[in-house]
Design a binder for these strands. Structure first.
Length: 297
RNA sequence: UUCUCCCGG
């Protein structure tokens, strides 16, 4: 049975649901793993019809089966259905709560997500990293610094933050314009900062008009032997554009291509155009636009 | 062997 399940799993991972279901139909001793594997395969293929069909044929769906279905509806943006299954689910697990909260977060149901978040705690269930990360995204997107700070307290109280959670905190503060708080989290990370942390922090400075701070941090990033990405340069160039740092901008653009081998994207070009255009060099701006390669993909 | 992620934020 286990080896059949593994084979089905391989087909599912290869997104070959036709072959997976062939095997599934030939199997005589299907267990819950088998069913769940198939359901999750249909869910990731966005085929909720088939997923639901299997789910309703199960005699006793376990929590993983339920969670897959909830996740599937959430990904499809059908939050009413997701919530409906969530409410009918007999033994909700931590993952169930996280799934439906993440679903509302993704679909802009911030209020519902927050309500569920408080609801789960009222039932004595502790938020974990997944929960908190969804809630922090909501605070970031809605620039709700007050809630964000409360969530920060909860993070410190409930979990040992991992790198993504730290990054969510930085992003949340940065989006709220709380640059100082963002920086405090950033510094707290000490050596475990990854590229995303650097990008989030530099982007935070850049988008709030702290051009020099952004560039300063970019320089320390390079000192730490951290490799910038195209995202980093979007922030760096936009910092230059907003700070009117024409020469620096040109030289960073050049360095991006020559030192780091990063292919310029439209975002980079638009900062560059902005930069030279705002300083009366319309000719040069036009020249850049004319020389822009068309991005194929 | 199966559930929380579309985005590097």
């Amino acid at each position: 049975v286990v080896s059949w399940n593994s084979m089905i799993m391989s087909y599912v991972k290869a997104k070959n649901m036709a072959s997976a279901s062939e095997l599934f139909n030939e199997m005589e001793n299907r267990d819950t793993f088998t069913w769940n594997t198939m359901i999750s395969g249909y869910v990731s293929a966005s085929d909720m019809e088939s997923a639901m069909k299997l789910f309703s044929e199960m005699k006793i769906p376990d929590s993983l089966s339920w969670n897959s279905i909830i996740s599937g509806f959430a990904q499809a943006g059908k939050m009413k259905l997701a919530l409906d299954f969530f409410q009918r689910m007999p033994q909700k697990t931590q993952v169930s709560w996280n799934t439906v909260i993440a679903g509302y977060e993704k679909n802009g149901g911030f209020k519902q997500a927050m309500e569920l978040f408080f609801h789960m705690q009222a039932e004595g269930r502790k938020p974990d990293r997944h929960t908190l990360s969804s809630i922090l995204s909501i605070c970031a997107e809605s620039a709700d610094q007050h809630t964000g700070m409360q969530m920060h307290q909860l993070v410190s109280k409930l979990v040992i933050p991992d790198i993504p959670l730290y990054n969510s905190l930085i992003t949340m503060y940065a989006r709220c314009g709380a640059i100082y708080e963002a920086r405090a989290v950033f510094d707290e990370m000490k050596p475990q900062k990854n590229v995303i942390s650097w990008n989030a922090m530099i982007g935070g400075y850049a988008s709030h008009g702290f051009a020099r701070e952004a560039l300063k941090l970019f320089e320390s990033m390079k000192c730490c032997k951290m490799k910038p990405t195209y995202i980093t340069f979007i922030s760096v160039l936009s910092a230059c554009a907003h700070g009117g740092l024409v020469e620096e901008g040109r030289s960073y653009f050049k360095s991006m291509v020559e030192d780091f081998g990063i292919k310029p994207r439209v975002e980079h070009f638009s900062s560059l155009v902005d930069l030279v255009g705002r300083h009366g060099k319309l000719e040069e701006a036009m020249e850049i636009i004319r020389s822009m390669p068309i991005e194929p993909d």
